[in-house]
Design a protein around this nucleic acid. Structure first.
Length: 267
DNA sequence: AATCGTTCCTGATAGC
DNA sequence: TGCTATCAGGAACGAT
């Protein structure tokens, strides 16, 4: 499940690798990933341009081309981007120096767009604050929490409030902040908001330093796993003792996905 | 209008 | 042992 730290790790290294390279060919083995346009031929015709920049918005990876078009990729659950790669790739970008980028995706949920404007992608134009930016302050978080009337867990996962957090980091963040996943956003007090803010920053920064979490299929562009899963304290840790109290980490269901939390610390 | 539950997809694994 | 059923989760979609 590539979330902000994983997509950002990919972006940073991909950028320095493919900047100013010209795309020579675009090979597609499975068209399910091409969301807009859907035609393989239109992609092949329009993608042959130079890479001007590689950016990220939330969990979207964006390859900016000199011809003004943008290749927007969302890895969803099992999407992988590998520099080089093999013949098993579902999509392959070939550069004029013969280097390649390969795309793999076991569960086929990934999304590829080739658009003039990000606004053509429904969720992308609605994305909320990037929690790793300087502009994301305690006040910003506080205002966002007031605007919503939902549970802390659902709030953090909603890409329209804060972008980039998925199920691994939401569980780690809430535990670190000692905040219940069921807590209503408007009922969170000022000192708790401050703690939540620092937990968001700290967990995402540490995950970024460790090059992300490889619990399922995530790999960096070299095909190597990230190391943050070794630092997970609640995600996938059902039944293990909490580090701060005598309780054990519990697993439950919220909004039809798995939540992991300490019933003692996160009241 | 905003929130909540269901669906998509396939590989891994629990359970009979 | 071998098969089937269930689970995993990001975000669109439909229902409330």
């Amino acid at each position: 499940m590539p979330e902000l730290p994983e997509v950002e790790t990919i972006r940073r290294e991909l950028r320095s690798l493919i900047l100013n390279k010209k795309i020579k060919d675009f090979q597609v083995k499975d068209s399910i990933f091409l969301k807009k346009p859907k035609s393989k031929a239109v992609w092949r015709k329009n993608i042959t341009s130079k890479v001007k920049d590689v950016t990220r918005q939330g969990k979207f990876l964006i390859i900016q081309l000199s011809n003004g078009l943008k290749v927007v990729i969302h890895l969803r659950m099992t999407g992988q981007i590998i520099y080089g790669g093999d013949d098993g790739a579902k999509i392959k970008i070939v550069f004029s120096d013969s280097s390649t980028l390969s795309y793999y995706d076991k569960r086929r949920f990934g999304e590829w767009y080739l658009v003039k404007n990000e606004k053509e992608i429904p969720l992308l134009c609605l994305l909320g604050a990037d929690p790793t930016e300087e502009s994301f302050t305690i006040d910003v978080l506080s205002n966002l929490l007031q605007k919503r009337n939902t549970k802390a867990y659902d709030f953090l996962l909603d890409q329209r409030s804060i972008s980039g957090i998925g199920n691994i980091y939401v569980n780690e963040i809430l535990y670190n902040a000692k905040l219940s996943p069921f807590r209503k956003t408007r009922e969170i007090k000022a000192d708790e908001i401050e703690q939540l803010y620092y937990s968001i920053r700290e967990i995402l920064n540490k995950a970024l330093k460790a090059r992300g979490s490889s619990v399922d299929t995530y790999l960096d562009i070299w095909g190597n796993p990230g190391k943050y899963a070794y630092q997970h304290v609640v995600y996938g840790k059902e039944g293990e003792f909490c580090a701060y109290c005598p309780n054990k980490i519990m697993r439950g269901k919220l909004s039809s996905r798995s939540i992991y939390f300490c019933p003692g610390c996160q009241q």
